[in-house]
Write a protein that binds this DNA or RNA. Structure first.
Lengths: 202, 202
DNA sequence: GCTCTTATCTTGACACTGTCAAGATAGCCT
DNA sequence: AGGCTATCTTGACAGTGTCAAGATAAGAGC
């Protein structure tokens, strides 16, 4: 368990953790297996005892990031549970904030570096969990007449698309700086949500 | 100009073209400078006469792809110019279709492999052009009471986010296959657009 | 206690990558 | 014709993902 040992003790999780750190400090483009290994204090091929290949490590980092996102949104969910209008705004805002504060983790999660063919069950599971969370928010808002009634799954996808798309475009610098600076992100965000909501939000 | 010559004649555009082909046939992960060079029939370092580094080539491929997208949407625009309702649906649908039929080009365009915004003026220019195109569509729809009046740029960003987000989530396989197969992409797409539009579309 | 098994980690190698420096080539201008 | 210069080649380097072979140590059974 201590450092310097031949057997690390918990190398698998250590590698995931180091991966997250590298993403935060150096970005997606500079995330290499060998660097992760070196930074974890093991030799360059050690990760292969725990991950089939680089894809598998990325899948694990991705899964870990989805868990972080889920926890973050769950916290907000509990805070605003009884107020559907705020619930919709704040959970969506939390999603956006996650994307902006941990851009490279967020990009990795949706970066198609993962050619998913059902090969990573943990990843699929946490993805499902996140969508279920979203569904609950939508259903609460539908009950409160904040969102149009009807197929909750359809509205959930629409809502997700709107927020996710905004996050992506902002991260890629595609939102014209003129528009961004004139209105500010929060106003743009609220404008998007207000398109979907039945009532004026905030 | 012919092949086999020491001087290629139009290597720069040839490299871009080969890059697009590799994206279509092998995907983003297998796009390397050396492979592009080999496939263009030149030595591995030849691209450096035309591009500062790999980023620059990617920027050029990206720019080229944005031009393709622009032309494709422009065609649809001209077809439905006089019918605002169809205009909104069909131009947005064209965007989605581009993403689905040329997934790796589309991913590359928004893949954050491009880090510098100001360094590639051609890229910035075509991006602006695309947003201007979108703005026109929004304004036409606002005039026709298809979209809420107000800041066109805000609504444009919302619309773009919604369609772009849906495209991304579909490409990444994040839309639950249950939802996708039950409703179909077109219905999901229309549901998203109907959230934003003032009238029922299609 | 001891051995044996096995997961874990190291070492070394390979092909491939992006990049740069040096040199070869040939189109073009005078 | 000769030379300039953009273009292309060759060769090298460090870094990459991956695999095979071997080293190590933790734990199980005796």
């Amino acid at each position: 368990m201590s450092e310097g040992n031949y057997h690390h003790g918990d190398l698998k999780n250590a590698l995931i953790q180091v991966g997250v750190e590298i993403l935060a400090e150096e970005g997606l483009g500079r995330l290499s297996l060998r660097k992760v290994a070196k930074q974890a204090g093991v030799s360059h091929a050690a990760p292969y005892s725990h991950f089939k290949d680089k894809q598998a490590l990325i899948a694990a980092i991705s899964t870990e990031s989805f868990k972080e996102l889920h926890i973050q949104i769950e916290t907000v969910f509990l805070d605003y549970k009884e107020n559907p209008k705020d619930l919709l705004v704040e959970t969506s805002w939390a999603y956006l904030q996650f994307a902006l504060t941990k851009p490279d983790q967020f990009k990795l999660m949706f970066s198609s570096v993962l050619e998913k063919e059902k090969k990573y069950p943990d990843f699929v599971e946490i993805s499902h969990l996140n969508f279920q969370q979203l569904l609950i928010v939508v259903e609460i808002c539908q009950d409160a007449k904040i969102l149009k009634s009807g197929q909750a799954s359809l509205t959930a996808v629409s809502l997700w698309s709107a927020v996710h798309g905004l996050a992506m475009l902002v991260l890629e610098g595609q939102i014209s700086s003129v528009v961004l600076e004139e209105h500010g992100l929060k106003e743009i965000f609220l404008h998007s949500l207000n398109q979907i909501a039945l009532v004026e939000l905030k």
